[in-house]
Design a binder for these strands. Structure first.
Lengths: 206, 206
DNA sequence: GTCTATACTGAGATAGAC
DNA sequence: GTCTATCTCAGTATAGAC
């Protein structure tokens, strides 16, 4: 990979994580990277393909880690299969672990999901991942019907995207450590996945 | 309100619900509405202010309905306050009831949240709503600490936004009725709100 | 008060010289 | 591989007709 490519990807990641994809112009990016405007189209072809490479250079390793964690969870679970919590953790945690080395990337992913820019990338690169996790969840929740499972996965993505955006707007919540945030998501989402259909929990809290 | 204003708002709602805010140009909107380009700036001042009016002409009534449902839930709850499920339903249901008369508006709201365009509008117009619902949840979940509650509200918004976007991408989920969708959200989210902190549910599903 | 015509700046994309 | 110049289309602004 040439130096120019690197500079463009780094500048785009930095700027887009702050302002989103649409609001970040190629002219901002090339100014920040110190290269010529036409080099974007020489190296990537378009703004959208630049984004594709930008996402995949980090999402690739994230998805490999997700698969590896799911492997371990299933190995430990033996014949029962992996537990719900371990499956959810395998999916959610690696996406936030990258905060340690590339904090802006996580925020960028949240923005991209929100802007609808992830749909294409997911269809293009994430298919094996989606299939495997759906199958694992299917097995962990055998009583949940297919439609309901699909919607709950959809809801989980919503929770993840929101968490990637950062802490809530108001003054009422902190910015927790990565581990605490993952714990919060898994606790919330696993309870949601386990909820009985058509029979809301009516127990009063203590 | 003049006819031109109406036409612009209607055209913008239709087009933006399909392609999002940023990807919809004023020139598309004025072509669809059959009016002159400059009329946008005469009537609204800018694309962003057009959006503000567009959102509030429907979100205004939605928020009033939310307040009214919360009033009823608290009246029924008496001294105990409203139940968690009723609070969540009061927040979520009215946002989806508008599908009956204005189906595109719900999708538009999902897109706008995703694009980060709702932040400003929420701060400008939704403050009383946020305060009231946060207080109601606080009361329904007295054992939950403030930070945790803030994050769980954040997560709920994520679920709502995802549901507004429409059914999940894959072939694995249907497009349910509004009532069924609300039921699904309330079931999932209420279980998440009730989950015990730092003590994940370990019960196997039957 | 309302609308039309037109111009200004900045976006993404592209062709061709070097 | 890189750069200059240029194309089309975006949001915005204003002058002036009715």
């Amino acid at each position: 990979m040439t130096e120019t490519r690197q500079k463009l990807l780094d500048a785009a990641e930095r700027l887009m994580s702050q302002n989103g994809y649409a609001a970040t112009s190629l002219r901002q990016i090339i100014a920040d990277a110190g290269v010529n405007l036409a080099s974007v189209h020489y190296h990537f072809g378009s703004k959208e393909e630049l984004l594709d490479e930008l996402v995949m250079r980090r999402a690739g390793p994230v998805n490999e880690e997700r698969m590896a964690m799911l492997d371990r969870a299933e190995a430990e679970g033996g014949a029962r299969g992996a537990s719900l919590e371990r499956i959810l953790e395998a999916f959610l945690a690696p996406a936030f672990y990258v905060r340690a080395t590339h904090p802006q990337f996580v925020k960028l992913m949240g923005r991209l999901y929100g802007e609808g820019m992830m749909g294409l990338i997911v269809r293009k690169h994430f298919s094996p991942l989606v299939v495997r996790f759906q199958a694992a969840l299917r097995r962990a929740l055998p009583d949940l019907d297919e439609q309901e499972l699909g919607w709950r996965i959809h809801f989980m993505i919503g929770v993840m995207v929101r968490a990637m955006f950062g802490p809530p707007d108001g003054l009422y919540a902190d910015d927790p450590s990565t581990e605490a945030l993952i714990e919060r998501m898994v606790t919330f989402v696993s309870a949601g996945f386990r909820a009985r259909v058509g029979q809301r929990e009516r127990v009063e809290v203590d």
